[in-house]
Simulated assay, not measured.
Amino acid sequence: MDAVSVNNNVSNMEIWISCSVASIVTVRAFLSTSDPTSTVPVRPNGTITSRLTVNGMDGATGVNLSIPGGGRWPTPPTKVVVTSTLATAAPTAGDLQGTALLVVNVPIIPDP
């Protein structure tokens, strides 16, 4: 295994969000609440990391999405793409494993 074969390896995951009323939601992907970085180690020794993005934006910052709502439930869902891009300077052979949070913040809309 060499850095060229690891660097920039990409994996995507699609999620779909729908709301019963129109909302602006924030979607973020990051390591942990105590370390809200978009860089996640996927080896215990940190030799390989994954950079998370949401719709092409830094995962820790995330994106604000306008989700339609309205007359019918459920409304057509909005696609969100979460991407993991590997990076390394000196990879070592072995399994890759990492844990991150995907947070969708939805505003509370009071009843009229």
Rank of each mutant, 00 (worst) to 15 (best):
L101S: 08
T37M: 00
I17E: 07
T75A: 15
S84Y: 06
T47N: 07
V21G: 08
L102T: 01
P74G: 01
A22W: 03
W73Q: 04
S18R: 07
G62M: 01
S18A: 13
N105H: 07
N55R: 07
I24W: 00
G94K: 09
G59D: 04
N12W: 09
A89N: 08
M13W: 08
W16H: 11
V106E: 15
N45P: 02
R72D: 05
N12D: 15
N7A: 02
A90Q: 13
P77A: 14
G70W: 03
N105I: 07
L31F: 10
R28A: 10
L101F: 09
S20E: 15
V10T: 14
S5G: 10
A29M: 04
V21W: 06
P91H: 00
M1Q: 09
V104P: 03
V6F: 01
T88E: 01
N55P: 01
V63F: 12
A3L: 09
V104G: 05
S32C: 00
V27P: 08
S32T: 06
V54H: 13
N55T: 00
K79H: 01
A90W: 11
P107M: 09
T61G: 12
L102M: 10
N9E: 14
M57W: 05
V6T: 10
P76G: 08
V80P: 03
V104E: 10
I67N: 08
D111W: 11
T39A: 06
T33S: 03
D2R: 07
V27C: 11
N8S: 11
K79Q: 12
I15F: 09
G94R: 08
G71I: 03
I108N: 12
T83W: 06
V25M: 05
A93H: 00
T92F: 06
T26H: 04
G56S: 04
V63I: 06
V54D: 12
W16Y: 14
T61F: 12
P74V: 03
S18I: 03
N64M: 09
W16I: 01
A22C: 02
S84N: 15
N64Q: 14
M13R: 14
N7W: 05
D111G: 13
T78V: 15
G70Y: 04
V80S: 11
M1T: 07
P76Y: 11
G94I: 05
E14W: 03
D111R: 11
A89T: 15
N7P: 05
N55D: 14
L96H: 06
L65G: 04
A60L: 00
W73M: 05
G94V: 07
I15P: 00
G46E: 00
I48T: 00
V104L: 15
G94L: 10
D58E: 05
S84R: 13
A100D: 05
P112K: 08
W73G: 01
T99Q: 15
R28E: 15
S32V: 02
T37V: 10
M1G: 08
N45C: 02
T26N: 09
I17Y: 12
N12C: 07
P68C: 08
M57G: 02
E14K: 09
P107D: 11
N45T: 05
S32R: 05
R72G: 04
M1K: 08
R72K: 05
L101R: 13
V6H: 00
D35E: 13
V21H: 11
A87M: 06
D95N: 09
A90I: 10
S5E: 13
V10K: 14
V42T: 02
A100M: 12
T99W: 12
L31G: 01
G59T: 05
V81M: 11
G69I: 08
T78L: 03
P110G: 04
